[in-house]
């Protein structure tokens, strides 16, 4: 039953190799699989295609893989806040496909749900629509977007059990439940790994069937990108 449990990121990522497509959870630096990203850097796999809403910052998150020139292509909705990214992209070193945020979420959801494509009004009449099939429903134009499945999906949750059931915390949920469905092999790292039966089934966000490998992460930095406070 606990065939899914691994000791750390390095062992859980066994099999990730050059040129693979990785679907990665997180929004900005919130809810990113920190341990997995660290291990990918250590492994040194190259030519990766990363599907992730953002690309981290210069020295954290996916920025760590950009520094090492391990990423060949990114599918993202927003990559501001990352000077290194901008430099590699403008010099032609890095390929980039901008995907509207809602379309990105839906492409992961569709891929994970066995739906190869769907129509959306998002992006009609813009660069995003270029080269895409269009169709009119009830008088409105829509474009065809494809579902995404990655060789691996890397997600971060708050709690998980040894079957792979996951619970996320607050806005660290974001793309994680969608990414979790969209990997041929999904690797989940959790802050707290518990025994089967310890999570309330009513509270589970990602049912364990979507998760093939799970481990308890360590040394979470949980960096804050924009610290904003009010005075008491």
């Amino acid at each position: 039953m606990s065939r899914k449990v691994y000791s750390d990121a390095m062992s859980a990522l066994n099999g990730v190799s050059d040129g693979m497509t990785l679907v990665i959870g997180g929004f900005g630096l919130c809810g990113i699989p920190e341990n997995c990203i660290g291990a990918l850097r250590e492994m040194g796999v190259k030519g990766l295609t990363c599907v992730s809403n953002n690309a981290g910052v210069d020295d954290f998150g996916l920025g760590l893989l950009l520094q090492n020139r391990q990423i060949k292509k990114m599918l993202s909705s927003y990559v501001g806040e990352n000077a290194l990214f901008e430099k590699q992209y403008l010099s032609g070193e890095l390929e980039l496909e901008f995907v509207p945020q809602g379309t990105l979420a839906e492409r992961m959801r569709a891929g994970g749900a066995g739906i190869p494509g769907f129509f959306t009004a998002t992006g009609v009449g813009t660069k995003v629509a270029e080269g895409k099939e269009t169709r009119t429903f009830d008088g409105r134009e829509y474009i065809l977007e494809r579902g995404i499945v990655g060789d691996y999906a890397l997600v971060k949750a708050w709690k998980g059990d040894k079957f792979g059931n996951l619970i996320y915390r607050k806005t660290a949920r974001n793309f994680n439940p969608l990414a979790a469905t969209a990997g041929k092999i999904t690797v989940a790292e959790v802050e707290e790994l518990v025994e089967i039966g310890e999570l309330d089934p009513d509270e589970v966000h990602t049912p364990g069937v979507f998760v093939q490998r799970i481990f308890q992460g360590k040394n979470y930095q949980k960096r804050i990108e924009q610290l904003t406070v009010r005075k008491g």
Binding site: L29, C30, E81, A105, E106, K170, R173, L178
Partner: peptide, 27 residues
């Protein structure tokens, strides 16, 4: 709380009656 941010990546709070959900539900 680093797990509680807005779309501008700023730290925020949840108001009374708030809910959290995935990016797919959001869109």
């Amino acid at each position: 709380d680093p797990d509680l941010i807005n779309a501008g990546k700023q730290t925020v709070t949840a108001a009374k009656g708030a809910s959290f959900f995935s990016s797919a539900d959001s869109f």
